[in-house]
Design a protein around this nucleic acid. Structure first.
Lengths: 337, 337
DNA sequence: TTGTATGCGTTATCAG
DNA sequence: CTGATAACGCATACAA
């Protein structure tokens, strides 16, 4: 690899001058500029970003930690797409680190990004607790934002959606449409999101004085497979229900498939609702109703805050993003009937 | 940030010694080791990977370039999942760079990874031609592998699947099942994969002496939306067909939705086949037949080769991965009827 | 077993 | 406008 020194020699100037023409800092005459550019051209010189970043103490990169258990789902590609897009828009590069499948590995991934000297870090936690995250944030001097968790202490360094409230709201809407027997497939119950959605379901029933029936409750694991298995379990229990709420779209898709295979029509006999409103969901037949989580907006806010913090800014206010139930055929048709 | 020097001082040794205990290279007594570790603990020292990588001239990272137009699809998350998994397995980190949506930007992304001194690079090209890639590979000293393209010169530095052959094969199978009127939704025709699949369709028809009917051919753009639009176009043309082949699963999913909305049953009136066999596809109702592309194996081979090349190895043989038609309800039910 | 000195490829601070 | 030269934080060959 040809270095800056070789370019300098070839152009008959010093390293410093080459550095100047490349960075645009400091004055340098047009003719030497030309000589330097020519030397660069001839030698095929490329800057070594490791060296540059070491010297400037800035890398122009944002790090993102996500558990690979999320990689399987559709939600992930959308999350990543928007994160990459926003990052580039701010003139930075996104670096992804795999949080794998444990709190320790999540911690390691964060540490890796810090060791790589990312300017700032975004964490989409799956296993770390909010207290652990608070601790990490306080120990580190780099700006850190947490997605999808409400932190206790550094409450302005996170952006979240109130999963309990939006689930409660969605289930309430179903109830107000006349549904009384609403089955529920949870997410993994070691995940805060999973727990919050479940408690939203419980709260909605309580709010309308509908007793919770255990036979209508089944535990899933976020995957389409577990959604399908949930339906199998419900049917084996001979549970009667007119609506089914799955804690995310992937499970809802799996559940729809299983309902269909079991000869149960949707829409018609069972209304199905999911969460996240992944872009491909509306193309599932029959159309899936879903609680839309505004990922785009959340990512945007997250990255804006990080950039602002990098410029020395501070935030004093918190921000939550409400989920919104999008009704599609699977529910609407049922209501009409 | 506390540096190695401070740790050294605190432990009463030199930087070199600290470096030794950290890297495990060279002898160092147990007691000084202990002192160093304690100093590290106390000071919360963390190595600066920029400095380390600059000094060692190795970063232990593999770079991956993918266009963000792929981010939207399901295929992408699976690709990335396996890439990240394999990379970690080899004790490296994966760095993702966005190829955005043009050849220039794809080139920039590659350049960025090179400037970051990734040890090796994987390119999943979308806009760059094979000749351009060959040129890049020859100019660079880092090992580079190309996914999903058959290179002309550096033919052992790529791993591909013969899209034409597998499409021809899939369509032939439909023909042998008795189908004569087979509609086809292409991918973007500025993409080699799209072109290859189309020519496979053509070849299959020719092989069975079935004339190509233009009304059965419609151009898509890889997205579910374009798949749905394709069906709309076909129906508007009042084209008659018993089978529909979409050039990827996302479009097939969109097409299925549109067929359903138009009151056309699948399976039954129309058999639908997609490509890629993304994991979520079987959960679509009705089950979607698909030509499975062995991404996992392809990624695995790609990364194995890169690691081998990093160790100075050389490959002399090429490797193609065959696609395989997986028949599911949407086709099978039709055949039974 | 440990310390010294030099290099990795840049940037940045001074003089000139 | 340009050139030395000192960081940046770490690894490593060479001495001791």
């Amino acid at each position: 690899m040809t270095t800056m020194l070789e370019v300098a020699k070839r152009a008959g100037v010093s390293k410093a001058t080459v550095s100047r023409v490349l960075s645009g800092n400091g004055y340098v005459s047009q003719e030497t500029k030309d000589r330097v550019f020519q030397a660069i051209e001839e030698s095929g010189y490329r800057p070594n970003l490791l060296a540059r970043n070491l010297a400037t103490k800035r890398t122009q990169t944002l790090g993102l930690v996500v558990t690979n258990t999320l990689y399987h789902g559709v939600y992930f590609s959308e999350l990543l797409f928007h994160a990459a897009r926003m990052t580039e828009e701010k003139g930075r590069q996104l670096i992804l680190a795999d949080g794998k499948h444990s709190a320790d590995e999540e911690r390691e991934a964060i540490q890796y990004l810090l060791d790589m000297r990312c300017d700032a870090i975004i964490i989409y936690p799956r296993f770390l607790s909010v207290d652990e995250m608070d601790e990490i944030i306080e120990k580190q001097e780099q700006p850190i934002m947490v997605l999808n968790r409400r932190l206790r202490k550094n409450s302005s360094q996170c952006v979240w959606s109130d999963h309990k409230a939006s689930c409660q709201d969605a289930v309430s809407q179903l109830i107000e449409m006349g549904h009384r027997d609403i089955a529920f497939i949870t997410g993994s119950l070691d995940s805060p999101t999973g727990i919050e959605r479940l408690s939203g379901y419980r709260a909605a029933l309580a709010q309308h004085q509908i007793p919770l029936r255990d036979e209508l409750l089944v535990e899933g694991k976020w995957t389409p497979e577990s959604g399908a298995a949930g339906v199998t379990t419900l049917l084996a229990r001979k549970a009667q229900f007119t609506a089914l709420v799955a804690s995310n779209d992937d499970m809802a898709i799996g559940a729809l498939k299983q309902l269909h295979d079991s000869g149960i029509a949707t829409p018609g006999e069972v209304s199905v609702v999911g969460f996240d409103d992944v872009a491909i969901a509306p193309y599932i037949v029959p159309s899936l109703s879903s609680v839309r989580i505004p990922v785009t907006e959340m990512i945007k806010e997250t990255i804006s805050r990080l950039i602002f913090m990098l410029d020395g800014g501070e935030f004093s206010y918190q921000q939550a993003f409400p989920g919104e139930l999008i009704l599609r055929d699977s529910v609407i048709a049922n209501v009409r009937a």
